[in-house]
Design a protein around this nucleic acid. Sequence first.
DNA 1: CACGGCCA
DNA 2: TGGCCGTGG
Length: 384
Amino acid sequence: MGIHKLMSLIDEKAPDAVKEITLDTLTGKKVAIDASMCIYQFLISTQTLKQGFGVTELRDKDGNLTGHLVGILNRTLSLLDHGIKPIWVFDGKAPQLKAGELEERKEKKKEAKEKMDQLMEEGKDDEAAKMAQRSIRVTPEMTEDAKKMLRLCNIPMVEAPSEAEAQCAQMVKDELAFATVTEDMDALTFGTTVLLRGFGNRKDPIRQITLSKVLEGFEMSMDEFIDLCILCGCDYTSSISGIGPVKAFKYITQYKTIEEVLEVLEKENTKSKSATKKRYQIPEEFLYKESRAFFNEPDVTKKEDLEEFKWGTPEEEALTKFLTEEKGFSEVTVNNALKKFKKTKGKANQKRLDTFFKMGTKKSTSKVTKTKAAVKSKGKKSFK
DNA sequence: CACGGCCA
DNA sequence: TGGCCGTGG
């Protein structure tokens, strides 16, 4: 999932690219959130282990999972409370390149489910719980419920043509958002200038990773970085056995491209042929060129084809109806959420105004806003 | 995921 | 006061 062990490589080779921050430092900023990733995490974190009864989840009366709705609602409110404007980005059609990876995941989930059932029968509850986490599948219905809730909240939402992380990265490049919020490191490979991770654990600080500083620390160009990521192991092709993040880093540093690295590896293989078996197994279909092309030019919607983002107030009646009547939320919970929405209304703008005055003269700042707004939004103000 | 309750 | 646990949905 994502890029195998890229984070440990960054920690080691480019520690300056990582900054520990709090939510307050993001006040006034917009962030693009990888919704698919969050949904999965929320579903896991709302599972509970009941001794003797196995794993229970949050469900509505029809048995549909609802933990992701709880999570998305709470996270949205927490961000708004800090004056941060969320844009939820959903996966579209999976790219053809990912078919193999998805098939593999499906198989693993099936295995996990079978193991879980077996462990349950044996009464090994906590081991079963681990398997239950692995067997979670996000269905189209769950995604639709999440989208519906966000629409009723009047919180911006983007349906990506393909990969959500790629769409997030594009939005950050287009300056529609400050950063991509995800645990999936390939957002960096797609070129997000800033990645935020660690929103899950309340205890640990959020980590802000800056792409330019990663490249600086790695002493690599973006092209080299993409090749490094593919060698480390990405979702779009199988990788070379015998090559992990450490060797990938060494070889790309030395030889710059996968083509060159492959030549070297083949030489090394023939050298060691007589001694033992082949050291490096290059997959039959090593789709590094296709993967590289996809990282460079994924299917995304660019700024000019996106609707302007607006952070409005919830459709109170319809939202209440949906969450209480269909999704089993208590009225108290929904009312509290609505209250929080009201409390946080205008918070981002208010705090932005504070920094606006702190920053200096009106003249200089309005110049900046003007140039930004003038890019494509025909007279309409992009800020509100 | 957040919240309330319980206990050191 | 702050960490852990059960519940909610």
